[in-house]
Design a protein around this nucleic acid. Structure first.
Lengths: 329, 329
DNA sequence: TGCATCACTGTAAACGATTACAGCGCGTCG
DNA sequence: CGACGCGCTGTAATCGTTTACAGTGATGCA
């Protein structure tokens, strides 16, 4: 860039210090402030953040580092975090390690060189060599979605589904369901597990069904029919629930159906009247951003913040359990 | 950060200049270089990029500005761009205007203050006041997906589907299809339009069908049956194609089906043998990153770069047109 | 009138790196 | 033998801000 504060000051007929103060809203006489404003406009002055950063030791930049960016969560997190932080004047440096631990470390280090004011680690695996450097530098780091002890000693923002799973369970119980089937794929999603747990805790019998890739959902439907006592409701991830319905299962007459929604869009489920647990990673982002800002303001957040990351939306695919089931219980 | 080059130099018993040279691989005697390396390791020195940026007028940072981040494209672009640029030492500042033109301008300006070495504008709308400042600063800006003249004078990277649509058409024609139906929703996607155009150019009759939100795909299937001459193939977006199949349409016996894939994942279509046009925004990202790097190296890219952003995957949902249709043509 | 107070302003020293320039010792070559 | 080139090194200027400090003139108050 060519035009510097120096030139602005010269044009406004004031010293460089006064010009700086005018721009930062410190005490400056009205006419001087106005002349500076004018000079800035005429010259098209754009502050040099690098110089500012060097002098004041703040870059107004935060790092957002993903272990792997490529899943629907990524977008939502970036969006939620940036919305909050942007309002405070921060920008986000984003990078993805593409599931490579070594690269994760390299990128963490790179962000440190860029002197980020803070760092968010999404799904970090293990500590790596860069983390101690952050500690030394006093740069706050918050982990999101980290497995257990991965980043010991750092505040961890973790999703929790207990509240929504509890409400879901309460509703099913109130409708008389005492036996519920759950479609549980190989890779078990946290919300599904949370629901299974909540149901069991409430004394509901839970049968798990594997979605056989080959047979598909119509076979699964048949298997549900063979369960004894017969399940009166089923909980399944988005895809599997759709498959069941496509296979001809009628809800709620035949079976009450609960969908564990995909991230973000719930519109289609709403339109079809499908009761669903809506996962909303935006809340994770907002919570993380908020925690970081308060940290920068002086108070370190607690070591673990559980964020209710889902909403329970009971809808018409839910019905009372048939009497037959009642007696079975 | 506390430990500076100064301290490294002191510890290594050399001057600050030598230390700097050692780190940047300039000519330094072997023993001195080694002592610096040692000192860096012992002190945990991390270079201050802000100072480097101030002095050398390069931030090794690029801006990536979205008009709206929230669609599957976003993730893919970030991933593709960062993969290429990260290897060159660049980091990405990411922001989304959340569909607000004024905010777009504010963010562009903010990136300019951060002294990004280059800027990618995704889906920009109109010029705004910040763009001229980039021009003045000599900071390269590349637009992606910009509508027509939005960013006049800037290199524009635009997706093109002509090649894949052409191959698709050739295959259909070779199979004897002379009348093809296209499910065309209100918001027309570029690849769908490209396919329609290619088909027409090849002399194929094209009937467009609106996906009636209420009636759904079974109604659409019925409508196709009523077309005269009867369409022998259908082209539809992911969701609609799935709907058709769920409604009982058998491919390819009854109808040849071509899916215009959703961004990214084609796995399910492959498994089901659905012929599809696979959209791959990664290529846009790679092309943009490459163009930018060559620009920074000195040669400005052309004003318009068309990137083939899809691959044609013919599969078993394609069959020869029945003779009856042959005669109709 | 004299002195403290006040609002504002300018001078100059940082911040932490890069790099032009000059100096040094030493080997080579005419 | 002197000039030169070469490889390495240190000194110091520089990038564009922020900010401590001191100075200015005007004002209030005794």
């Amino acid at each position: 860039m060519r035009v510097t504060l120096h030139q602005v000051a010269a044009r406004a007929g004031v010293s460089i210090a006064t010009a700086s103060r005018a721009l930062n809203g410190l005490s400056v006489s009205a006419p001087a402030r106005e002349r500076v404003r004018q000079a800035v406009a005429e010259l098209g002055y754009v502050a040099n953040e690098a110089a500012r950063a060097l002098r004041s030791d703040r870059t107004l930049t935060m790092g957002l580092l993903f272990f792997d960016l490529r899943n629907n969560l990524g977008i939502e997190l970036i969006d939620a975090l940036s919305e909050t932080l942007e309002a405070e004047g921060y920008s986000l440096l984003v990078a993805s390690a593409r599931a490579d631990r070594r690269r994760y470390d390299v990128l963490m280090r790179r962000f440190l060189e860029r002197r980020v004011d803070a760092l968010f680690c999404i799904n970090p695996r293990g500590e790596g060599e860069a983390l101690p450097l952050y500690r030394e530098a006093g740069t706050p780091v918050i982990a999101l979605f980290a497995a257990g002890s991965a980043f010991a000693g750092l505040p961890l923002i973790a999703p929790s589904f207990s509240a929504s799973a509890g409400m879901l369970t309460a509703d099913l119980v109130a409708l008389g369901h005492r036996h519920v089937a759950i479609v549980l794929p190989e890779v078990k999603s946290p919300p599904l597990l949370a629901v299974a747990e909540a149901l069991k805790a409430a004394g509901v019998a839970v049968s798990t069904i594997e979605p056989s890739e080959a047979g598909g959902m119509s076979e699964a439907a048949a298997r549900i029919g063979r369960l004894t006592p017969r399940a009166t409701a089923i909980v399944a991830a988005h895809v599997h629930a759709r498959g069941l319905l496509a296979a001809g299962v009628r809800a709620p007459e035949q079976l009450s159906v609960v969908v564990i929604g995909e991230v973000g869009v719930d519109a289609r489920n709403r339109k079809r009247g499908l009761a669903s647990l809506v996962i909303d990673p935006q809340r994770m982002g907002k919570a993380a951003a908020g925690a970081m800002l308060t940290w920068l303001a002086g108070t370190r957040p607690p070591d673990r913040i559980a964020v209710q990351a889902a909403t329970w939306e009971p809808r018409s695919s839910l019905g009372a359990a048939p009497l037959r089931a009642e007696t079975a219980a």
